[in-house]
């Protein structure tokens, strides 16, 4: 595993820098509208990327396995507006169950 304190420190410094940049440095000046629109799309693009990348790849190879079924269950649960913790448990439990069977 590559987890380290360096990651914790850099992520904390970087996250605070962004928060402070808009709030303290830029203050009440305005960004161009098109740029703000793009920046607000970051969660949509990156969350979708995280979901598909972690479901359909293993390391650098493409993969299709029990994770895909767990994901489908999670998507249905989220679409039915179930609470986040329930979505997480259903997705993980489906995958765990299939791993136990295969």
């Amino acid at each position: 595993m590559n987890m380290s304190w360096a990651l914790v420190i850099w992520l904390s410094v970087g996250a605070y820098a962004f928060k402070m940049f808009g709030f303290v440095i830029i203050g009440s000046r305005k960004l161009p509208q098109a740029l703000s629109r793009c920046l607000l799309l970051i969660p949509a693009a990156l969350l979708a990327a995280l979901v598909f990348n972690s479901t359909f790849t293993t390391g650098q190879s493409l993969a299709l396995d029990e994770r895909a079924i767990g994901l489908v269950v999670a998507i249905i649960a989220a679409w039915r507006k179930l609470p986040l913790i329930v979505v997480v448990i259903l997705g993980a439990a489906t995958t765990a169950l299939l791993r136990g069977l295969m």
Partner: peptide, 29 residues
């Protein structure tokens, strides 16, 4: 990190996501 990425790889996406707080700051300031 869980999928075997490096600290640099983990930071890239995470910081891009953190960037939107900068936009919120602009709105609140």
């Amino acid at each position: 990190i869980a999928s075997g990425g490096t600290v640099g790889g983990a930071l890239g996406g995470a910081l891009l996501l953190a960037g939107r707080n900068g936009v919120y700051g602009l709105a609140l300031s």
